[in-house]
């Protein structure tokens, strides 16, 4: 039994590492075909053998960044209400609603936004098709909010209750307690909530695939169409398996893997700081 348990852990670990090497090895023809630098910063022009994924990286960053700009203030506000302003039953109802919202499937957001939000954006801004970075960011911001709210509420509730009671005893109103005590104490927790939100936004495929238009050109503004790394993988799947164009999706997978790894390391650092701060 002990052996079986160890074996399970080893298999889990090896599979995770194997994904990384799979991306590296299968994308290798592309790596050796051109310079890595050219692949990462060059444009996309399969006609002249250019398979740079820079437009996709810009698209991913823009859409995920936009989603954070929409989602963070929204989630912070809702988390403040849930953790501080609401009491008793309202607090419980809010929390369970938010938990429930985090289970709404991604394609459902995409589908409804495609039918309603895309024509709305098109008619509001009179430019483009409505499939834009803005549309995708708005929906993605809403999509990542429930997760972020739960993390924010956990962080705000995690502040030492003794300190909270002390502040209340000194006559601080709930708002003052939030503003001058909980906000600064819970900052690392809030920060890691934002990082997790960023991870979810970067990793999402279907919102950007359905709403961002998937144009391969470098986007010039938020009303332009763009393609994300994840959507690129989904779109190129239909192309001939041995072409260099196909192998570019492994480069995308590789970049996404490295990005995830980086976020995990950032979370570690934040968490570490958090723990050390609490001991003192």
């Amino acid at each position: 039994m002990t052996r079986l348990i160890r074996a399970a852990a080893v298999v889990t670990g090896i599979c995770t590492i194997a994904v990384f090497f799979m991306m590296l090895i299968l994308g290798w023809p592309l790596f050796s075909h051109g310079h890595l630098f050219a692949l990462l910063v060059g444009g996309w022009n399969p006609g002249s053998d250019q398979f740079g994924i820079l437009p996709m990286m810009v698209g991913s960053t823009a859409i995920a960044g936009g989603a954070l700009l929409v989602g963070t203030p929204l989630s912070l506000g809702v988390a403040f209400v849930t953790a501080v302003f609401a009491r008793g039953r309202m607090r419980r109802v809010l929390l369970s609603c938010v938990r429930l919202m985090s289970g709404v499937p991604t394609v459902v957001y995409g589908f409804v936004a495609l039918i309603y939000l895309v024509p709305f954006i098109r008619s509001q801004f009179h430019s483009g098709s409505g499939f834009s970075i803005l549309t995708a960011s708005l929906v993605l911001g809403l999509l990542i909010s429930p997760t972020m709210i739960v993390l924010f509420v956990n962080a705000l509730d995690g502040v030492d209750p003794r300190a909270r009671r002390a502040a209340a005893a000194l006559g601080a109103t709930p708002v003052q307690r939030l503003l001058y005590l909980q906000l600064s104490e819970a900052l690392p927790g809030l920060l890691s909530g934002v990082v997790m939100g960023l991870g979810r936004a970067m990793g999402d495929t279907f919102i950007s695939l359905m709403l961002a238009g998937n144009s391969i050109n470098m986007p010039d503004g938020v009303l332009e169409s763009a393609r994300t790394l994840t959507a690129h993988i989904a779109l190129v799947m239909a192309v001939d398996f041995h072409s260099l164009e196909f192998q570019s999706i492994y480069l995308c997978g590789f970049v996404l893997y490295l990005f995830t790894f980086m976020l995990v390391l950032i979370l570690r650092v934040v968490d570490h700081r958090f723990r050390r701060g609490r001991v003192q």
């Binding site: 991306m23 997978g253 893997y257 995830t260 976020l263």
Partner: peptide, 10 residues
């Protein structure tokens, strides 16, 4: 944290 499309690709 791995995006689900990367898992699918793997």
């Amino acid at each position: 944290g791995l995006p689900s499309i990367v898992v699918g690709l793997a």
